[in-house]
Write a protein that binds this DNA or RNA. Sequence first.
DNA 1: GCCCCGCATATACACTCGTATAGCACAATG
DNA 2: CATTGTGCTATACGAGTGTATATGCGGGGC
Lengths: 205, 205
Amino acid sequence: MAKRLETRNGGEDAPGRRHLLDAGMRLFAERGFAGVGLREIAAEAGVSLGLVRTHFGSKDGLRDAIDEYVLGEIKRLYATVLEHSGAGALTKAVEDALDWIPRDRVVLMYARMALMEKTPGSQALFDQLLAIMRQFIETNAKRGLLQPDVDREWAAIYLLFDFIGPAIIEPFAKPAFGKSMYSKPMISARNAFMVRAFTRGFLKG
Amino acid sequence: MAKRLETRNGGEDAPGRRHLLDAGMRLFAERGFAGVGLREIAAEAGVSLGLVRTHFGSKDGLRDAIDEYVLGEIKRLYATVLEHSGAGALTKAVEDALDWIPRDRVVLMYARMALMEKTPGSQALFDQLLAIMRQFIETNAKRGLLQPDVDREWAAIYLLFDFIGPAIIEPFAKPAFGKSMYSKPMISARNAFMVRAFTRGFLKG
DNA sequence: GCCCCGCATATACACTCGTATAGCACAATG
DNA sequence: CATTGTGCTATACGAGTGTATATGCGGGGC
């Protein structure tokens, strides 16, 4: 009789909980938080509606849990980038994406959608992404790889644009380009242009 | 007696219609299509619920009308950019934004949200934005302002990233930077960095 | 003067939403 | 063996959804 309210969360590895989190992440990524109902998520996860309440307390609780998971994954996935520096690190990061993006595509697309809907979780995600970019710029600066008199804050912001850009336009890529932003030919062409643009620009002064 | 179904749309300048379109645009931009109900939109517009059906036929019809309006505004707002070329044109475009963004902020924020929800209207918006960027690159190329051996397609894509980037992160800007992406200090700092990065890059080769 | 039609309102309907409650099977623990 | 608690299901409730229908008012053309 109501001895534990709110999220119980005792066992985080219950199969139903994991299925709900995965299904919610996928569906929210596709149609947004308000665009998907709990019944559809439960059906997709192969569990009953009531289980959402058991594990997450409410729909917002489910989102919070997904936000937390995705934030952790983003940190993990970009950790390797921060250990390197220079334009080579960027190409390496983009090429690494070829490995993990097929597997973690849902995480990436959820992060993309989260950036649209302003919530505490999405603000935290944004702050994390910006921190990653700032750290990359600082690492490069310490190693003397930054050109002199560069506005480091805006360099970080532009880096952020270029990293979230492909994710943002990914849903429109197939009609517009005939292939995914994360397909092999797109990745390599992007790599070539990125290195060039970051080190030399592309317009004449 | 049901002689005309669907959207009637005879008079596009009925005051109620305009109010509904404005209110829908603003609310959809803030919370997404599924996140807002017709009753709230009608209340915000100061008209009755049924008027949506009279003018737009359905909620989807309302979105279609908003999409069309926003697409036209985007075309109009970026028309001036296309007449110029070089890095100077970009700074001019960004500075022009200082004029029209306060006034057309809702249009911009709706376009931002539209890029999240994949619909025919949002695909058309994306195609339009990409076309604008491609045309800018081609204009620059014809005038000899492009560096040699530049991948023009990816130059256009990166230009697109840098133009939608500020809109995407605008909702997180105040907590993260203390000011809007479209405030005067941000615009001028961005201008300085953009010209530099586009003509010389910011990393050492 | 009548009629029709464009603009607008009010109200009802069927459905879906998130949430709440009651209960079941089963493993671990005393 | 009885008890406890966890993971889970089934079902009900009230509020809110988009859509449909019926109606009112006011101006221009026959």
